[in-house]
Nucleic acid binder design. Structure first.
Length: 192
DNA sequence: GTTGCGATTGCCT
DNA sequence: GGCAATCGCAACT
């Protein structure tokens, strides 16, 4: 029996896994192992963004940038932030997505260290921009399915899930839509 | 056509 | 803790 409030998935996520409220998906993604061309790790931090959410890129409807957010469940949504960092999302129901914010590195450590220019495991994938850089994600991956190569998502480890407020946003602050693996040293910021 | 700014990071004090 | 970097997008004239 798995304790309530913890993550545990036995099977590889299918489209139905993503076709749910983004908050439920964000919590359920904690503990999954995500790799891109063999490099990646366990998801330890996520955030949910919804259609009627002022902080979401989809808030004002479809645009050129956010098209992937309306491409259907399990699509990736990759965007550039501050002119320098790529961020990876998992699309859920139309106009909603889960920002993948941090991984506990488990696979392809050498290539991720080379891409990041550091071997510090704690900083390899701690933050959405760092994670994308370590996995080699750019605009080229925008709109691709997370259920097919180069992506791979499969059961990893069960964690107790904690929540907090989303990071770095200026609108709709205060909502507890950030999810993390309790006690993980690989998150971008500690949970209060 | 122009302008303001962002779901971040790394370097500096 | 403060702040510059850097550019594509979307809002606005």
């Amino acid at each position: 029996m798995v304790p309530e409030g913890s993550s545990a998935l036995r099977d590889t996520p299918g489209q139905d896994f993503f076709a749910r409220d983004a908050r439920a998906v964000a919590a359920a993604m904690i503990g999954l192992e995500l790799t891109v061309n063999g490099a990646g790790g366990l998801i330890v931090e996520t955030e949910a963004y919804l259609p009627d959410d002022p902080a979401s890129h989809s808030f004002r409807g479809p645009t050129a940038r956010n098209a992937a957010m309306f491409a259907g469940p399990a699509a990736s949504y990759v965007y550039l932030i501050y002119g320098r960092h790529w961020c990876l999302n998992a699309v859920c129901l139309p106009g909603s997505a889960v920002l993948i914010r941090a991984l506990e590195p488990t696979a392809g450590l050498d290539i991720m260290a080379a891409r990041r220019g550091t071997a510090d495991m704690r900083k390899l994938c701690a933050g959405p921009g760092r994670l994308a850089e370590a996995l080699g994600i750019t605009r080229a991956e925008d709109g691709l399915s997370l259920m097919a190569p180069p992506f791979a998502l499969r059961p990893g480890r069960s964690f107790s899930v904690v929540t907090g407020t989303r990071i770095g946003i200026t609108r709709a602050t205060g909502l507890p839509w950030r999810f993390g693996a309790a006690g993980s040293p690989f998150v971008s910021r500690r949970f209060g």
